[in-house]
Amino acid sequence: MPITETNIDPDALTLQIVADFTVPVARLWDAYTDPRQIERFWGPPEWPATFTRHDAFVGGLSKYRMTGPDGSSSAGYWQWTAVDPQRSFEVRDGFAGEDGEPKTEMPSMSMVFEFAETALGSRLTTTTSFDSLEQLEELKSMGMVEGTTAAMGQIDAVLEDLATFAHELPTASQLVGDTQVRVSRVVRGSVEQVWQAHTDPELLRRWQLGPDGWSMPVCEYGAEVGSALRTEWRDDASGEQFGFVGTVLESQPPTRLVTTERMISPADPEGADSPETTNELTLTAVSGGTLVVYLITYPSAEVREMVLQTGMVAGMEDGYARLESAVL
């Protein structure tokens, strides 16, 4: 159990938890800023969490849902208010509705996570500040201390699991809920470099080439909200063509880009008959480079399965391997 101290101060309206670890600060920081890792310990063992969004930058938002053994669920959010990389971050933590959006009428609290080096590794001090004594007592009565203690008891296993999150692993996918998939890979390069590679048409032409023998004659891309996107590929031997069109819905350079996407073909040049997806790209600095996370939302589970069976994830891995070797 990493927790070494727990203090409740009714006068200061704070709950402080101190935990010590035998890993470097960088490793502990990655565990908290990587959605694949934090969801393995944020909820108590019987209430595991799933993060559908996790922005480790000021102004960002995290969305998570904890699911109980009976199938019931409880959703929450973080609003990121301060970030000092590998030193500290501060969030506003609160309850969310079924749609994942913050429920502002419910109590929320400020949480500060402070990371420090120690002789044996690292120390994490988490200070939760409440708005009133009533709020502190209410959340305490709801089992907040016990739940946090149980959740943090899982961190050591995540920190020891170096293989699952190694930066040299290929692109991997994880089903989320009924209609989403999360695709992740650590790419060698800075967040700024990886962002540029995903939004600059000239760079995209160099690594998003599709299968061998294919070219990208059309690449209209950008990161401005409202921008129309269009990419087209062609088999130079057979002349076969396909592509995608979409629109930029949200842009927070260099960390987050949300777009729509529909598949197009010569017979359907605007994708009118193609199901539309929403693609949320998030870039996070981690040890070894930049964690690239795509959360893709499909109109149905059937469409999700159909797309995954096309070899989409393997194709993305080919592209990222080319990105590292030819662009970064």
Rank of each mutant, 00 (worst) to 15 (best):
S88N: 11
F89Q: 06
L61N: 04
V91D: 13
S72L: 05
T81P: 07
S72P: 02
Y64S: 09
T81Y: 08
D70G: 09
F57E: 02
A82T: 15
Q86L: 15
W78S: 03
D84I: 11
S73K: 10
T81R: 10
G68Q: 05
D93M: 13
T67R: 07
T67F: 08
R87N: 15
Y64K: 05
P85I: 13
T67H: 05
S74A: 14
G71D: 02
S72W: 04
S74Y: 10
L61Y: 06
D84G: 03
E90W: 04
V91C: 14
G71K: 09
D70E: 06
K63H: 11
M66E: 01
Q79S: 12
M66K: 07
Q79H: 10
R65A: 10
T67K: 03
S72Y: 11
W80C: 14
Q86H: 14
S62M: 12
P69W: 07
D84P: 02
D84Q: 12
A82I: 12
G71E: 03
D84A: 13
S72D: 07
D70V: 02
G71T: 05
T81S: 10
M66C: 08
D93E: 13
G59V: 00
Y77Q: 00
S72E: 11
A75D: 08
D70A: 07
G76I: 01
W80G: 00
R92E: 15
R87I: 09
S72M: 09
G59L: 03
A82Q: 15
E90R: 11
K63Y: 11
W78L: 14
G68F: 06
F57W: 01
D70L: 08
G76E: 01
S73F: 15
G59E: 09
W78E: 13
W80N: 14
G76M: 03
S62P: 02
F57D: 04
S72K: 11
S73C: 05
A75E: 08
W78H: 14
A75P: 07
Y64N: 08
G94Q: 05
T67S: 09
D93K: 00
V58T: 14
V91F: 09
G60D: 01
V58F: 08
S73T: 13
G76R: 03
E90Y: 09
G59S: 01
G60T: 00
G76N: 03
S88C: 12
A75Y: 00
Y64C: 02
G60L: 03
G94L: 05
L61A: 03
R65W: 05
A82L: 14
Q86C: 14
G60F: 05
Y64V: 09
V83F: 04
S88T: 07
T81A: 13
S74H: 10
D70N: 07
V83L: 03
P85E: 09
Q86P: 08
S62F: 06
S73N: 15
G68A: 03
G59Y: 05
K63W: 12
D84Y: 11
V91L: 09
V91T: 12
V58P: 06
K63A: 13
W78C: 10
G59H: 00
E90P: 08
S73V: 13
L61E: 07
E90M: 08
Q86R: 15
P85M: 15
M66V: 00
P69G: 01
S72C: 04
Y64G: 04
S74K: 12
S73I: 05
D84F: 08
Q86N: 15
F89E: 06
G71V: 07
W80I: 14
P85G: 12
S62Y: 01
A82N: 13
